[in-house]
Simulated assay, not measured.
Amino acid sequence: MRGICKEEDYSFLGISEQTTRGTTEGGGALEDDWRDRREERVRRRLEREQQERERLQEIEESKKEKQQQWQSHVAELTSSQEKSLQDRLTRLRRFRDFQRKVLVEESGMEGEAACLTVDQLLTRM
């Protein structure tokens, strides 16, 4: 019944069935184009999301790498400073021993009294 009504409508409007079939087929092509465009938009959106995730992952890796480099740099500086302080302490102790030895020899005193006097002199310095 519906088909008959369509034919009558087309004949009333002066449009042939062949034209309407072409339009219907063309409508299918439009629908296919619309689906293709929609799928393309979805695909591009997914690609953008994937690229964004990769970019964020690279940023995180870069931050971790920089943090690790900074920590190793700080550890290296601390180690070198500790070594420098230990070397300085050793040199100071040697110099104090040398001073003590020289002062004991110059004072000409021997024993416990000489050590106390030398320690007092070194403390004053």
Rank of each mutant, 00 (worst) to 15 (best):
R53E: 14
T24V: 15
G111R: 07
I4V: 11
I59T: 10
K64N: 04
R88H: 06
K83C: 09
L121Y: 03
G14C: 03
A75W: 01
E58Y: 06
R53A: 12
S79W: 02
R2G: 08
E82N: 07
K64F: 03
E54P: 00
M1D: 07
E54K: 15
R93E: 11
D9T: 05
E39M: 14
R2E: 13
D87E: 13
T117E: 03
E60L: 14
F12Q: 03
L56I: 04
G108F: 04
E105K: 13
E65S: 09
Q81F: 05
Q18N: 09
R38N: 10
Q120M: 09
Q67P: 00
R44A: 14
M109V: 05
S80F: 14
E52K: 11
G111D: 06
T123Y: 05
C115T: 01
E106S: 10
G28M: 01
E110A: 03
E105A: 10
R2S: 11
E106V: 06
M109L: 15
Q81Y: 08
Q69I: 11
R35S: 13
E25I: 01
E40T: 11
D119Q: 14
M1Q: 06
S16Q: 02
C5P: 00
T123M: 08
R21L: 14
L85T: 04
Q120Y: 07
R124H: 08
L116Q: 10
S107T: 08
S62L: 14
K63T: 05
F98S: 11
G26Y: 06
T90Y: 10
I59H: 03
R124K: 12
E17Y: 06
R100V: 00
E60S: 15
T90E: 09
V74Y: 04
S16V: 00
E47F: 04
Q50V: 00
Q57L: 12
T24C: 03
E76F: 12
Q99W: 04
M109S: 10
E112K: 11
R41H: 12
Q99G: 02
Q69E: 08
T117V: 07
G3Y: 00
E58G: 12
R21Q: 08
V118S: 06
Q99C: 15
T90W: 08
T24R: 15
A113N: 02
R21S: 14
V104L: 11
Q18M: 08
R37A: 10
E110M: 03
R35W: 05
Q120K: 15
Q68T: 11
L13E: 02
L13F: 01
F12Y: 09
E52F: 04
A113F: 08
E25C: 13
D32E: 05
G111W: 05
R45H: 15
E40V: 05
S62C: 04
C5N: 06
E106A: 08
L46G: 05
M1N: 10
D33V: 09
E47A: 12
E17V: 07
E39T: 07
E49L: 05
E31H: 07
R88G: 12
E61R: 15
